[in-house]
Design a protein around this nucleic acid. Structure first.
Lengths: 128, 128, 128, 128
DNA sequence: GTGGTCTAGACCACC
DNA sequence: GTGGTCTAGACCACG
């Protein structure tokens, strides 16, 4: 499942956050599943437990995971959570910036739309 | 024109880079136009000249601006630059991540596509 | 390895950029190697960390180094990067100007070609 | 003859210096020819006389031109001047740096040599 | 420990 | 006037 690219300029914990989100969308992780403990994940990925812990915390505040004290950390169903309009706005903003970049790289609107469709296809229909 | 949000987590110079790119796509800045000098822009935005300079340099390496020592900094025509496939690939990757985020925020594919169309519309047809 | 000539008219950071490139071609620095940290290099060369940082950043945009925040800066494999035709053109232009200078200094074509062969020889075959 | 590219990042006076050297090698300017006065050249090129003057001064110290007070500025024969070994060394150094750049841009030795031959060919045999 | 950002202020070359 | 370089020193995020 999750794989950390040590040469990426992206922070490890961010790669982990993204990787888990991707696994959920792929259906590799299902709602209710228990994910490995911080220590175990740290062993698997050869990383510092602090880094894993940070990723889990982020995913908790984003309501992707729930930690039950003494039991472990679990995947939450996406539908459980109301759409967070603040983060939606941020994402929309990010997309606007991406479109500006795209135009400067001479990428057409059609191409962008195609990219989205490709991305969605590769994720499969597990969330709909 | 450009406005810097001092509360944004994004670096000032990156906001400036993006703002200038946006102004170009909006047609507010046209190829050949002289943009405000480093010192003047610094005064306008209440920032340090070094920060402005950094933004201008980034835009120069991205072939968006040309700077002539002793004369000033000027807008370059977008068509002058061949598509940089490395950066295109990076952008595609960013978009993939954005799509993952979107799914977790329960944003549909259709909505994303609509956002892109809205973004492109607001930029106008100045580059096509 | 790298040495900065404080009397040179060339900017310190440019000398550093060139020196690192040379070390890579000489095989002193190998792909994957970690280069000294900004602060350490600054100490070694008796320079300001900002200046070192600038050199590293240039080398990163030129795809010679990769930097991972919190970990350090690393040498990238040359073959990873596709040939940048814009920079190739600029270099060709520089060479044209150099040939003009050479003629005025009464340096023959044969001599120039010999210089190139000498230069290549001293760099060794590490990239071929 | 000489043409100044206002968009080039190279200083005007340097472009002029190079342009005149090129014209000499092309045979457009012959030894003994009188070149236009500073004022006239300034008018022709729509530039500041100071800039022209600086270029002429550089060419004088490089022994490419001679100024005879009250008569004007004249082209000198290349052979008149002994080879300036200091500048030859500098040029050799520049070429070394250029070779390093070339290697990083994945340009082969053969290609560089071909470029030199092309450059020499375009200059013609006027100096030999 | 690592690099990234930002400010402040100095000096230089070009126009 | 313009941008470019360099220093000094502060603060932040990542591991």
């Amino acid at each position: 499942m999750v794989h950390i690219d040590k040469n990426s300029s992206r922070a490890y914990y961010e790669q982990l956050v993204l990787g888990i989100k991707e696994d959920i969308l792929h259906g590799i992780l299902q709602p209710g599943d228990k994910i490995p403990s911080v220590r175990e994940m740290a062993k698997q990925l050869l990383m510092n437990p602090n880094t894993i812990s940070k990723a889990y915390k982020v995913l908790e505040t984003e309501k992707v995971l729930v930690t039950v004290k003494g039991k472990g950390t679990f995947v939450r169903a996406i539908e459980e959570t109301p759409r967070d309009e603040i983060r939606v706005q941020e994402l929309k903003n990010d997309l606007n910036e991406l479109v500006i970049e795209a135009r400067h790289l001479q990428i057409s609107q059609e191409e962008l739309v195609q990219w989205i469709k490709d991305a969605e296809k590769s994720l499969g229909g597990h969330s709909s």
